[in-house]
Design a protein around this nucleic acid. Structure first.
Length: 424
RNA sequence: GGAGAGAUGCCAGAGUGGUUGAAUGGGAUGGUCUCGAAAACCGUUUUCCGGCUUGUUCGGAACGAGGGUUCGAAUCCCUCUCUCUCCGCCA
């Protein structure tokens, strides 16, 4: 949620920023917020004055009663009673303005950072870096959904039987490869100073609002209605919400957390012909890194986090490219996002395996996540997160790119975690 | 699942319906003292919203949450949430 003070003080910049997201009604969104805000303030002003007078009168009544002059208090009591009705209706009005304002602010996405290019969609993203060479596979190279059958390591039919489409079952070396990747990612993160967190994989409604999944995206989460819980779409939600309503000691900054969790996504309406095999699932595993930083260092941190994720891909010997997302392709909450995509040789496609974002104060404002600086001033912190990494597409790329006549070779760096070097 | 107890500031813990934003103790922090430290003593110590004369300023709000009674509620009433203890069940 954007900070109202910023909308007030930098109206033009906010509008211009939102327009980079290809929002046509940016100006109207901002001005409606400003209008609701000024109505709210006006109402509060009158209300406060009325309450101040009524507080004074009540105090006087108290003094008169103490002094045993109950008779003299009668007329004052009448006056206060009259004001009470006005106060009540003004309070209702104020609450309604506040409610409308909050609901409205929930609908305004974050303002993209200066470096973010304007654009409507994926075509306008900037390819800022490429690593490795595109693998040249023989003509009979198999896509991963064939390879998993050939080696019997991941079974979609079994998953379909016990749960539904998009819930694969990992077997034997397939399961071990999952476990190895998770351990590899967690160990690497720990070496970088991230504290491992194992959070619940369901969250309550307040947490959904805290990180911006709610309102709007409830259709994308599995909802346990009987208990008012949501299955998490990413570890970002529980981990970032650990710091909801928290005033952080400056000495404890920066905060660096890493967590492995299964992730659940309904992916309603996003199934198409090109979404096969592991490319898109309802449940998948992911290791997520989260950082909480002071405003002045958050962009350096964004670079640092990208560099870390890129390092993982390089260790896994996967060719990748790094995209700076344009305004129109960025998530609702983000101020700046880099996507990392690996190349899957048999599908001949780039697959997004990580998305690293700086949310600036957008989440912190909702979360009330703050710290007190050296001057004793309370300030919102910046939140950042990134996948490091999402498993299924990494597995897909490893399977496709590393296939040989004798089986699939496992990247060296994983050997100590898998205990085997080849899937055959 | 059954029975009971409770929820107050950074923590512990008071609080007859009328200067209680809140006693007291602890912690933290500034100062005095000291060569330095401890002790002692004296201060300070929540957050949100609004106004303007942007100030060591004025007003409003907050004692789990939401309602109600009252001129006035931390204090009385109702609903909800959560925590703890005991019993039952159980990985």
């Amino acid at each position: 949620m954007l900070q109202l003070t910023i909308i007030r003080e930098q109206r033009q910049q906010v509008i211009a920023g939102l327009q980079k997201r290809n929002l046509k009604d940016a100006e109207q969104l901002v001005d409606t917020a400003l209008q609701l805000d000024s109505q709210r303030r006006e109402t509060q002003k009158t209300l406060d004055e009325l309450k101040a007078q009524s507080n004074i009168d009540s105090k006087k009544i108290g003094e008169l009663m103490k002094a045993g002059k109950a008779g003299e208090a009668t007329s004052l009591r009448q006056a206060v009673a009259n004001d009470k009705d006005k106060i009540k209706s003004l309070e209702t009005e104020l609450t309604s303005f506040e409610e409308k304002l909050t609901q409205h602010l929930y609908r305004i996405p974050n303002v993209p950072a200066e470096k973010v290019p304007a654009g409507a969609g994926a075509d306008d993203n900037l390819n800022v870096y490429e690593y490795g060479s595109i693998p040249t596979l023989s003509d009979d190279a198999l896509p991963h959904w064939e390879l998993i059958k050939k080696y019997d390591i991941i079974d979609f039919d079994l998953g379909n039987k016990i749960a539904g489409a998009g819930f694969p079952v990992y077997k034997g070396k397939g399961a071990k490869l999952q476990r190895a990747l998770i351990n590899f990612f967690l160990s690497e993160a720990e070496k970088q100073g991230y504290l491992e967190i194992q959070p619940p994989i369901v969250v309550n409604e307040a947490s959904g609002y805290g990180t911006g999944q709610l309102p709007d995206k409830e259709g994308q989460m599995f909802h346990v209605t009987a208990d008012a819980l949501y299955l998490i779409p990413t570890a970002e939600v529980p981990i970032t919400n650990l710091y909801r309503d928290v005033m952080i000691q400056e000495d404890n900054l920066p905060i660096k957390n890493v967590g492995y969790t299964p992730c659940f996504r309904r992916e309603a309406g996003s199934w198409g012909a090109h979404v096969r095999g592991l490319n898109r699932l309802h449940q998948f595993d992911k290791v997520e890194i989260v950082q909480i930083r002071k405003a002045e260092e958050s962009y350096a941190t964004l670079d640092e986090m990208c560099a870390y994720v890129q390092g993982l891909l390089e260790k896994l010997e996967l060719p990748y490219r790094k995209l700076l997302l344009c305004g129109g392709d960025m998530g609702f909450n983000s101020a700046m996002t880099y996507d990392l995509e690996v190349y899957a040789g048999a599908q001949k496609r780039w697959l997004e395996v990580s998305s690293v974002s700086n949310f600036e104060t957008f989440q912190a404002n909702r979360l009330k996540l703050r710290y007190k600086n050296k001057e004793g001033k309370t300030q919102l912190l910046h939140t950042l997160n990134g996948s490091a990494l999402a498993l299924p597409r990494i597995v897909a790329a490893i399977l496709e790119n590393n296939q040989t006549k004798d089986g699939i070779t496992i990247p060296k760096v994983l050997w100590e975690y898998t205990g085997f070097k080849v899937i055959s």
